[in-house]
């Protein structure tokens, strides 16, 4: 299982990547899997155990997301 975070715009996805790279956080951008309904075609994919750290990071840096999923990728 992987953690998949979806976004409403490409710019939001890019904001996520920017913050995660700067903070050396886990994950990478992937195309949104078919099993998920999302606005933007890009999603952040990371290990499930990174969820708490990533949520904290997003709050601290004002990165907005659409939804957070656990799914098989």
């Amino acid at each position: 299982m992987r953690l998949v975070i979806t976004f409403r715009t490409t710019a939001e996805a890019m904001a996520m990547e920017r913050v995660c790279r700067e903070q050396q956080a886990d994950g990478r951008l992937i195309p949104v899997p078919r099993s998920i309904s999302a606005g933007c075609g890009l999603a952040w994919c990371a290990a499930p155990q990174s969820e708490e750290a990533l949520m904290q990071l997003m709050r601290e840096h004002g990165v907005a997301c659409e939804a957070v999923y656990s799914c098989l990728v």
């Binding site: 490409t10 710019a11 890019m14 990547e17 920017r18 992937i30 195309p31 075609g41 890009l42």
Partner: peptide
């Protein structure tokens, strides 16, 4: 093309465009 794929060519476009926005 920015936002039209998750391969590095598309992502690089999105990265540069996002940097310009910032």
């Amino acid at each position: 093309n920015s936002g039209r794929g998750a391969h590095d060519a598309a992502l690089d476009a999105s990265r540069v465009i996002y940097e310009a926005r910032e």
